[in-house]
């Protein structure tokens, strides 16, 4: 093996080629384009709701009138329980199980690239694409929100108004926090992806897991279990819209997702190195 080290391709080129490989698939482009529709649909829906009497809805929807920069945050929290885990699972499923299905994973495994490095490159592709998807939703959401609702600053849940710079900072923070949560789900999906050669199994298992977690989170009798569930931390992310920013829950949810990433990637690595080509 050591003789092969010198022939390894530069890491940067490998990462670039992985991204190019994902982005060149038509379904990726179509998928990203349809993700852009989510904030537009949410914005239009809220626009009609705002016209009526009283608040447009519960939670963040209540403060959206004249407060367009809330829309990206609202849309991300809307997409986090189901849509974004699905997006993460799709990237993860394509990464290993999809390659295995097409028989191309075998070629990658016998190529002179370490399997851990292979996993790292695949994980990089999944992580980058998750970030791209989340950022895209937030970007389209911000544009849609400002067009439909206007607003120069951002009204927080606490009733104070943030300046434009602070508001953009909050949106970027939301993007990062939500992306880390998607990574947590995608890491588990990577572990499943390493065990199967059917991408559909990966997506079905991941989504089933997310739904089961959400159901478990709904039973108060199981409250001892809730701190372990990644889905239970998502509700607390709305703290990002409070002022002054309470960081405790945000750190906790990020650390929780970090644990899922470590577990998922370790399991994936364990499976990949023991896989017979």
């Amino acid at each position: 093996m050591s003789a092969l080290v010198a022939t390894r391709a530069p890491l940067g080129r490998q990462l670039r080629s992985e991204l190019r490989w994902i982005l060149r698939r038509p379904r990726t482009v179509i998928g990203l384009a349809s993700l852009c529709l989510v904030p537009i649909l949410a914005g239009v829906g809220l626009w009609f709701a705002v016209d009526g009497d009283g608040p447009a809805g519960p939670g963040l929807a209540a403060i959206i009138a004249g407060n367009g920069l809330v829309l990206p945050v609202f849309t991300l929290f809307l997409a986090l329980p189901l849509l974004l885990p699905l997006v993460g699972a799709i990237w993860a499923a394509d990464g290993l199980a999809g390659e295995a299905q097409h028989g191309t994973l075998r070629g990658l495994m016998i190529s002179p690239v370490g399997r851990i490095r292979l996993l790292g490159i695949k994980a990089f592709g999944v992580a980058t694409m998750s970030l791209v998807a989340v950022t895209l939703i937030a970007f389209v959401g911000a544009i849609t929100g400002v067009v439909l609702f206007g607003g120069e600053g951002m009204l927080t849940l606490s009733g104070s108004t943030l300046s434009l710079g602070e508001a953009l900072g909050r949106i970027v923070l939301t993007i990062l926090l939500v992306t880390v949560q998607v990574w947590g789900v995608a890491a588990i999906a990577m572990a499943i992806s390493a065990c199967t050669e059917h991408p559909l199994v990966v997506m079905a298992a991941t989504m089933a897991g997310v739904i089961v977690f959400a159901v478990l989170g709904a039973f108060s009798a199981l409250d001892w279990l809730h701190p372990y569930l990644i889905t239970s931390a998502w509700q607390g992310l709305v703290d990002v819209m409070r002022d002054p920013l309470p960081t405790e829950e945000l750190w906790r949810s990020t650390a929780l997702a970090g644990c899922y990433i470590v577990i998922g990637m370790s399991l994936a690595a364990m499976r990949l190195v023991t896989k017979d080509n």
């Binding site: 093996m1 399997r115 906790r252 650390a255 470590v262 399991l267 190195v273 023991t274």
Partner: peptide, 24 residues
């Protein structure tokens, strides 16, 4: 080397699970 990787990965799983416990 493969065995070392498996052991390292197992340690990773345990570390992650411990982290979950600590957070809870």
């Amino acid at each position: 080397r493969r065995r070392v990787t498996v052991v390292a990965a197992a340690v990773g799983v345990i570390a992650g699970a411990t982290g979950l416990g600590v957070l809870a």
